[in-house]
Amino acid sequence: MGEEQDEQSMKKIAASSYDYENDSRWADYWSNIFIPPHMASRSDVVDHFKRKFYQRYIDPELVVGPMPSSGSSQPARPPPAPSSSSTTGQSQTRSSGSSTRTSGTSPAAAPAAGSSSLRLDRQTVQFSVNTWVFIVAVLAIFPLTPRSLSNKAYRLSFMGTLCSSIYSLYSLYGRPSAWNLQGVQVWFRSIYGTKDFIYLLYCLTFVTSNLHLKFALIPVLCRALEYVAKFLRRNFGRATMYRKYFEEPCLWVESNTTTLSILTSHAQIGMGFLMIISLLSQHRNFLQTIMYWQLLKLMYHAPVTAGYHQSVWTKIGQTIYPLVNRYAPFLNTPLTTAQRWFLR
């Protein structure tokens, strides 16, 4: 029994000293946890979820206790009745002590309230931007939309998602600690491979492109849909209008996030092949095509998207390679070279 306690103590120390900020999985894990803002600002609650994260991804044998409650206040025992000779002195002491306690606790309460309101503001901003992105993207892909309006909506969809990704990265990671090469490198390593950074590069590719492939809006729509559904369920779950019109769609979105991620990965990989085909058109852009395939390579290796992309590429390989071996064996060498570069 004593050895197990010592082992758990060592595991808790290791979990406390783990560098969560430089683990891209922690930011994604924390962003998907919905708890009241007043609890999210408490360090003991954050430490609890860090231990849960450590148990899930690092050491499954770590024992994590229940989440700390909001705290209970026990009434103090009534003091004995003061004598008449010391009433004045004790009342002065109590008044000065209470004023001291009040002045001591007020600064501590103010930052907590400020951080709670700031957290709510971040969620509201993300909800507003992604709702706007969803509406504009639907307008862009709607068949009856005029061509000029559709093209503007197409670019605005990517610009909105780009702004949302930048805002999310700034909210989670802030700015570099120092504006020098080392500080920027440390900051860049913390955001590299995160989902928001991937969407930032994805939107940059198509905002600056002359191609108007509405197929590219599928990942943007899926991302906006997830943000909107989560916000509505969390903040308007008891509203009559939500229960009447939005409850079932939001429930479907939250229960099918894996399906949306698979659809997103299919669309992103499909866009890579469409950009190769576009090299035969007058809107070809070799540089953007190369950059996009570098992004696909990042998606293949990044932890937040690797599972979905690797599954899709496995299916593609199982379909393509038998056909190549049967009808075009001379393509084996270039395909092997491309695969070696992609997996490197």
Rank of each mutant, 00 (worst) to 15 (best):
A306H: 09
I290N: 12
I218W: 00
R238P: 07
H301E: 11
L296I: 13
S281R: 00
A224K: 01
L274E: 08
G237V: 12
P249C: 11
W252A: 09
E226N: 09
V228I: 15
F273P: 02
R223T: 03
N256L: 09
S255Q: 14
G270A: 06
M271Y: 04
A216F: 05
Q288V: 02
N325G: 12
T319P: 06
T289M: 11
E248H: 10
L260I: 09
L263G: 05
V253M: 09
I276V: 15
A216R: 00
I290R: 12
I276Y: 11
V304Q: 05
R326W: 05
F236G: 04
Q268W: 01
M275G: 02
S278I: 01
G307N: 13
G307R: 10
M291I: 10
I269Y: 10
R233K: 15
Y308P: 05
I277K: 14
R326T: 07
V324S: 05
L298P: 06
C250E: 00
R223G: 02
F273Y: 15
A267R: 08
T305S: 15
P303F: 05
N285L: 00
L213W: 09
L251H: 09
E226C: 00
Q310F: 05
I316E: 13
T289D: 02
S261M: 02
Q282T: 13
L296A: 06
Y300R: 10
Y308G: 08
Y227M: 11
H266E: 14
C250L: 07
R234Q: 13
G237T: 11
M299A: 02
T314P: 05
S265H: 02
L296F: 07
A267Y: 08
V220G: 00
L280A: 14
M291H: 08
I320F: 13
A302R: 06
L295H: 14
Y327S: 09
I276F: 11
G237L: 10
I276D: 08
R234L: 14
A216V: 05
T289H: 03
F231R: 02
G237F: 11
P249E: 12
Y242A: 05
Y242L: 10
S265L: 03
L296H: 02
F246M: 15
H266L: 14
L280Y: 13
G270H: 00
A216L: 04
L217R: 05
L221G: 04
W293S: 03
M271D: 05
M271C: 11
Q318D: 15
V228E: 03
R284I: 00
V220L: 15
C250K: 06
L274S: 06
I276L: 15
M299D: 02
M271W: 03
Q288W: 02
R243M: 07
V253E: 01
A229M: 04
L274Q: 08
G237W: 12
W252L: 08
K244S: 13
Q294I: 02
F286I: 08
P219G: 01
H309R: 03
T259W: 09
T259E: 13
C222M: 10
I276M: 13
G317L: 07
